[in-house]
Design a protein around this nucleic acid. Structure first.
Lengths: 249, 249
DNA sequence: ATATTAAGTGGCATTAAGCCAATAATATTA
DNA sequence: TAATATTATTGGCTTAATGCCACTTAATAT
């Protein structure tokens, strides 16, 4: 007879008799699909699994929530990312949660997917001294056989990224300030997987008043007109445009 | 020594020695914030908790995932909703997942929040013969003391609903076909918590080609011009507008 | 016949993007 | 030194979509 069936007269008494081990056990994890740009090409960070199940397969960084360490899901995602890859992100958001009886051979599994963005970091900063982690071009990662349903998770995160790039300033998180408008546009174009009319883009960004000019920098090809340099204004990350850009409607 | 520490030579051998009970246990639940319109006012369905913890308090319908019954989260949400309230929804979508050490006194808890919409149903169909379930005006539910963090969950669902109503046809799910354009506009206005310019609304809906006309019906006040009646075209539920409506930007 | 009510539409203004080309500013080459 | 190539920035017209206010149409009640 479990606590559910016996009659209790107070919550205190109920909790006293409650034993969580009496109930179904679940595999409870977080997975992080973290993106950056390398030479204006979207890259995703994968780790090679060191243990069973699916030992040796590439996977999204993540893993089990540890009750002694993790106060909440977000903290768990940040900790797992750092632990598995050495990488720290300043933009992490929840995408969705996948839970079912079959996705993991060990049992009923529930995993909360996060996506993170970071500005490109030099290769040396990717921690190869921790579990084997590596940045892959996203298109290449798509062709890999990944552990579990992690390819599906990664694709889900990518779809979310693409959609949000049409009406938020999410791509801004892929750039280390300061940056030029050309670089910003290229980041938007890469995430949205489309080309954007230069005039339209610049007008939209300038109308939104998201950036402050911080100087001038050399043109990308080494010659040509100097470009203005910008950094985001405080609070600009929360901006949402009224119209979706690049819609194929 | 757990399976994590011992060296295995194959996945089969690893799984053979794996015992899920060796690991942290979690409370794994789903919660459903389901909405309808009653007299053009947003209502939410709550259930009064029949057991500890928080016995007697109003809460969102939901509860523990049962591994023997639930193949995945979505199924669990549908089953729990029906079980607790007798209500069946044809539009249910995941909102977000809340997980932390403190939200439930029994242990580390993770709950996946879904939101659902149904066309208004007569009161008699709300199942009072199952657990005590009742439709509340959303504004009134906001003033109630609810169990756990369910008020926060309900608000999160509401915010999502409001946002998506600006660029999708979500409000259409609150109406039983056939409906008039005036009724559709009122549904949009209630969800978006704003007024919409009649001409703009009609033009936008007609341009999107979402509806098919199925006759005429009496005007709402009992006199005045007959209104055209519509039902959604197949596939119209996936429509996304390029511009957000009712933005205060 | 007139007033009222509800649904539907006209048409101009405003906002935001699409498009193509032009200008400005720099380095390289002849 | 002038011409050319390259990159960044802007001009200005067109197109698309909404905002706004008023108007017309169509029905019922008085």
């Amino acid at each position: 007879m479990t606590t559910q069936q016996k009659k209790y007269t107070s919550e205190k008494e109920y909790l006293k008799g409650y034993d969580i081990k009496d109930y179904d056990s679940f595999l409870v994890t977080v997975d992080v699909s973290i993106f950056t740009l390398v030479d204006n090409e979207l890259h995703v960070l994968l780790v090679k699994r060191g243990d069973y199940p699916q030992k040796g397969k590439w996977a999204l960084p993540g893993g089990f929530i540890q009750q002694g360490k993790d106060k909440n899901l977000h903290d768990a995602a940040l900790r797992k990312l750092l632990e598995k890859t050495g990488v720290k992100t300043f933009h992490l958001e929840q995408v969705s949660t996948f839970g079912d009886a079959k996705r993991d051979p060990r049992g009923w599994s529930i995993s909360t997917l996060y996506m993170g963005l970071i500005p490109h970091v030099p290769t040396a900063e990717t921690s190869d001294s921790i579990e084997e982690a590596k940045w892959w071009p996203y298109e290449e990662a798509l062709r890999k056989k990944m552990a579990y349903d992690h390819k599906k998770l990664m694709q889900e995160a990518r779809e979310r990224l693409k959609a949000k790039s049409g009406y938020t300033v999410l791509p801004m998180y892929l750039l280390k300030a300061p940056f030029t408008l050309t670089q910003l546009q290229q980041a938007f174009e890469e995430l949205m997987d489309t080309t954007i009319e230069k005039k339209s883009f610049r007008r939209r960004i300038q109308a939104a008043d998201l950036l402050e000019e911080v100087g001038e920098g050399l043109p990308e090809g080494g010659r040509g007109r100097m470009a203005a340099l910008f950094k985001p204004k405080k609070g600009s990350c929360r901006h949402a445009f009224v119209r979706r850009f690049g819609s194929e409607e």
